[in-house]
């Protein structure tokens, strides 16, 4: 299972970097989305992949059961997803605006027009 997740993270990063290297700014944003998903998935996996052992302290016990699923990476990943959502929403609006102002979605052509 761990291997599958490792490959998934790798594929997300590779696809993200590939899209970012394209000339279109829209693909750039999609690439950023994929890359941040890769990072989120990596944090999730970093907490360990365990099922059926929630980090809940049973009655009378002082600590959660051995081998419990660490809740902190899940909290971290939730925070990161929320932040990523806001940032991507902003980036999408920015790209829309850039395309309209510049009349193109190609980064290279924007440079020519500014100079």
């Amino acid at each position: 299972m761990f291997f599958v997740f490792a490959v998934a993270v790798g594929v997300l990063f590779a696809a993200g970097v590939f899209l970012m290297l394209r000339p279109s700014v829209i693909r750039l944003v999609i690439g950023l989305v994929l890359m941040s998903h890769g990072a989120n998935l990596l944090i999730f996996v970093a907490g360990g992949l365990r099922r059926g052992t929630p980090a809940i302290v049973a009655d009378g016990a002082l600590s959660p059961p051995a081998g419990y699923a660490d809740p902190i990476p899940q909290a971290l990943v939730l925070t990161a997803i929320v932040i990523g959502f806001a940032v991507v929403a902003f980036a999408a609006v920015l790209v829309k605006r850039v395309c309209r102002v510049m009349g193109t979605d190609e980064l290279d052509r924007m440079r020519e027009e500014v100079a």
Binding site: G38, L42, I43
Partner: peptide, 26 residues
Amino acid sequence: MAGAIKYVAINLISSAVFLVAVGILY
């Protein structure tokens, strides 16, 4: 607009790398 798109893109890449580093560190 031309400045902002570069600034936003590179900073988001930096954040993704930071997040990966934090995940591995934890």
